[in-house]
Each structure stands twice: as structure tokens, then as C-alpha cells.
Simulated scan of single mutants.
Amino acid sequence: MEYFPHGTQTALARAVAAEVRALMAVERISVRELALSAGFRSHNYLAIRLRDEKPLTLDDVEMICAALGEEPTDLLQRAVDQHHARFIEDANRQAEANAVERRRREADEAELSGEAPSLRAVANKGKLEDPGENSI
């Protein structure tokens, strides 16, 4: 299990806080108002968590959801979905960056070995194909 130092949060914890902030925006409720209606002793406690300085606990989520008339499981599912979508976006972005780097390395190696890619290969972003009779 990965250890997260004090003051840091996982991406999922940040997604949960983002969902709470989104609910607050829809309901047009301030942190102070939410803290009071949810039963927190201090609005500062909630503000710190909604600024992603510390993670919300499951007890916090239950109290917040009760005050906003929201099911905790629905809020948590939206946060998981948001987290998953961001994870997929990041993975796709990294895969594209890796592909670009691989094509650059292949072009550099071809240049060093004297096998510079044809103009058609460069135009096709490194996808080598037989130029045939219509080569440049």
C-alpha cells in the first residue's frame, strides 16, 4: 500500500472534494452554511478539506450528504467516475507522448545509420510504407 505524507491527498480524495464543491455550487451554499447545517464544529475544518489541504473522511462525506440531501454512494460514485476518466485521459496522453518519443528516436537512429526516412514516411508521422513507383 502506498503511503501519502501528511498534507497530501490521492487523486480520488481530491475528486471527492471536487464533487462536494460542485454540490455546494448547485445548492448555492457557502462553506460556513454547509458546516453549520452538517453539524461540523468549525467551518474552518471543512474549508481546509474542501481546499484539498486534508482529505475528507467518510464520516465527513456522510454528514455533508445528509445536509445536502444527497446519497453518499451517489457522490462517491461520481467521484470515482471522475477519477477514472482523468486516469484514462492521463494514460492516453502518456501513450501519445511515448509514441512521439519513439518516432523521434527511430528517426534519429535512421539518420545516424544513414537511412534517413523518405519524405512520405515523415509526412505519415513515421509510419513507414513502400513508396512504390510514385516515390518522390
Rank of each mutant, 00 (worst) to 15 (best):
E33G: 15
E133A: 15
R93F: 04
E109W: 03
A91T: 03
A47F: 02
A66V: 04
R78T: 06
E89N: 12
A110W: 00
N98H: 11
S37I: 10
C65V: 01
V122H: 05
R32S: 14
P131F: 10
D90M: 02
T73Q: 09
D81W: 02
V100S: 13
E106F: 06
R51W: 05
A121V: 01
Y45L: 15
A121M: 03
E96F: 08
D52L: 08
D59M: 03
N44H: 03
M63F: 08
L46V: 09
G132T: 05
N92L: 15
A85R: 08
P55L: 05
R49T: 12
R78M: 03
D81G: 00
D52H: 14
N134T: 13
L56R: 02
L58W: 01
D60R: 05
E129C: 05
I136Y: 06
E96T: 04
I64Q: 14
K54D: 11
R41F: 05
L34S: 08
A121G: 02
E133S: 12
A99Q: 13
K125M: 04
R104N: 02
A38S: 15
L76H: 10
Q82H: 10
L58C: 06
K125N: 06
P55T: 02
R32F: 06
L50A: 13
T57P: 11
L56Q: 04
A67N: 04
P117K: 06
Q94P: 00
A91D: 08
A110T: 00
V100A: 14
P72G: 05
E111P: 00
R105Q: 14
A110C: 09
V80I: 08
Y45A: 13
L46Q: 11
N98D: 15
A79S: 05
P131V: 09
L46C: 14
N98M: 09
D60A: 12
A91S: 04
R103Q: 07
R86V: 01
R49Y: 07
H43V: 07
A116L: 07
I88T: 10
E111C: 09
R49G: 13
L34Q: 06
A47L: 10
L75M: 07
I88W: 00
E62V: 01
Q77N: 08
P117G: 10
A99V: 13
E129I: 02
K54P: 00
A121Q: 08
E129Y: 00
L46N: 12
Y45G: 11
A110R: 05
L36G: 04
D74E: 12
V31S: 12
I88Q: 12
